[in-house]
Design a protein around this nucleic acid. Structure first.
Lengths: 134, 134
DNA sequence: GTTCGTATGTGATGTTATTACATTAGTCAA
DNA sequence: TTGACTAATGTAATAACATCACATACGAAC
């Protein structure tokens, strides 16, 4: 995988839709946005999303069944760590961060218990600073 | 809420189903198991699940859309901390644990960013020790 | 140009969750 | 006891999320 991944037409369309958006989008929202580009079926979206997830260009937010463009596309600092997400339930904004201490601590548990992790999800739902003071 | 929560008939049936199970169950699996007890519609299950979640007697596993009975029903040690789950993708077994360091670290981030958390999800998917050596 | 792997198109289906509305059962006060 | 209120339940329909199965197109390698 190179710095800038070569994307197919559908993958580009889906990635652009997520990049344009100011927050996470559901697969069906993406589908609706891309109807004018010839998208007809959910699978067109899901297949593109799968690849983009593979490439590490987007994230899936498990707790809200939505997808978001990676906030740090050029930053490989957390490529070996876990990424955590704070999701505002008021405005939908997502903050992405990674924490070495949490990563280490999770790895301690998995090592200690013989568990081979493949994907770790850390999602905090709540109310962001802007919405909390408003 | 007392030590032992008073449950309604449907709540008891759903809770018992989850307690009997040796792993997480989807809402529709629970529904199927309770057909003989008069369950007909998803809502009967979802309503009971909502209450049981409220009472802290069960957990929802966001990454696999399933529910599991709390592994430490009489242990209030992690009632103020976050609960993490290791989910084996081979056998479905779920290990539940809580970690004060992770809890503290997450709280540091939320405090530092003015984020008011309501629910935090930590789920590790992978292969458990038993399945890894098999 | 044939073969092969990858990407795409399309319809149908499977799975998870909620909305809307009707009914039942228990509690409490007048 | 009645009425009013609240919680729980029953049921049908629908919404939201995801995959399967199969057909077609496209590009690279030989």
């Amino acid at each position: 995988m190179t710095a800038t991944q070569e994307l197919t037409k559908n993958q580009s369309l889906v990635f652009d839709a997520l990049t344009r958006a100011d927050g996470p989008l559901s697969a069906y929202t993406i589908l609706d946005q891309l109807r004018d580009n010839g998208f007809r079926a959910p699978l067109q979206v899901y297949r593109a999303l799968d690849k983009l997830l593979d490439y590490g260009m987007i994230h899936r937010l498990e707790s809200i069944n939505a997808f978001v463009a990676c906030a740090h596309p050029h930053d490989h600092s957390h490529s070996h760590g876990m990424t955590a997400f704070a999701i505002c339930e008021k405005c939908g904004q997502v903050s992405e961060f990674s924490d070495d201490v949490i990563t280490a601590r999770v790895r301690e548990w998995t090592n200690g218990n013989g568990f081979k992790p493949s994907k770790t999800t850390i999602e905090i739902r709540g109310v962001c600073a802007s919405c909390g003071t408003a």
